[in-house]
Simulated scan of single mutants.
Amino acid sequence: MPVGDWQFSLALGIGELSNPLQGGDDIPLLILPYINYYGEQFFIENNVIGYSFYQSDQLVLSAIGQLNREKAFFTDWQPSHLFVPNFSDSMLTESDHKTISKDDVSKRKWAVDGGIQLNWFINQSTELKVQLLHDINQVYQGLNSQLALYHRINISDNAQLNLGIGANWHSAKLNDYYYGLDEKDQVGLSNYYQAEGGINPFVSLGFYYQLTSKWQAQIRFKQQRLSRKITDSPLVKDQQVTSAFIGVVYAF
């Protein structure tokens, strides 16, 4: 994109983000807005706002802020909501392990993460991204990080395949705030759970076909394996989070 230009796109299609929580509905992905802006140093990439204070042909080091995703699983997503911005150290035995619905615990808050992002463009097709973030609005008072490798394969002049592999690390304070259970949740002492830090690996796949200068067809898939420190929580029913989308994108 030219420096200083805004890009607005809208994806229309059918998709879903799975919800790993007990009592949680899967999140529909039907209408997805994209907003991008790249200035000399300031940039916006959808829900990420950043400022690049070091740039070279291969390395970009930025300060960023973004919304933490975990709260989305605790939100009720009805059909009218079309937009969308992981065994245990517990003392419970299997017979004591009661499932707890997200609707029966205290409300979790949205967290805004801020920190450092490094983009290393290894070559024109391969990028390594590293993030280290802390919640700047002091919701869970912890850290999270990401290490991801992305590779683009140009199938033809109009078709492109993007492959990704990586992992997100959550600190104990992050996992315990969202997936732990204690007196504030009023679930009974036998159901208390204290989550520790863990690593959540993921893989992603995206296929893009340029139909015209304005229209593009997309198929996207991502699956993240949740750490045992998350899946051992009575709040959690699934061991992974999966998102899939198929549709078209119009660039304004």
Rank of each mutant, 00 (worst) to 15 (best):
L12A: 12
G13H: 05
L17T: 07
S18Q: 08
S18Y: 06
S18D: 04
G23Q: 02
D26E: 06
I27K: 09
L30D: 13
L32P: 05
Y34V: 10
I35F: 09
Y37D: 02
I44E: 06
E45F: 07
N46C: 08
N47R: 10
G50M: 02
S56L: 03
S56R: 02
L59E: 08
A63W: 05
Q66W: 05
L67A: 08
R69K: 13
E70V: 03
A72W: 05
P85W: 09
E94I: 15
K98Q: 13
T99D: 15
I100D: 00
D104V: 06
V105Q: 00
S106T: 09
R108N: 04
W110S: 14
V112F: 13
N119T: 05
N119H: 04
N119D: 13
W120S: 10
F121R: 15
I122T: 06
N123E: 01
S125I: 11
Q131A: 06
I136T: 12
V139P: 00
S145L: 10
H151P: 02
I153N: 08
I153M: 13
Q160R: 15
L161R: 07
N175I: 03
N175G: 01
Y177Q: 01
D182N: 06
E183R: 15
E183P: 03
E183Y: 14
Q186P: 07
L189S: 15
L189R: 09
S190T: 14
Y192P: 03
Y193C: 01
A195I: 09
E196I: 05
G198D: 01
G206R: 05
G206H: 01
F207P: 00
L211Y: 12
K214D: 12
Q216I: 04
Q223R: 11
T231E: 15
S233N: 03
S233K: 08
L235R: 02
Q239S: 14
A244N: 07
F245I: 04
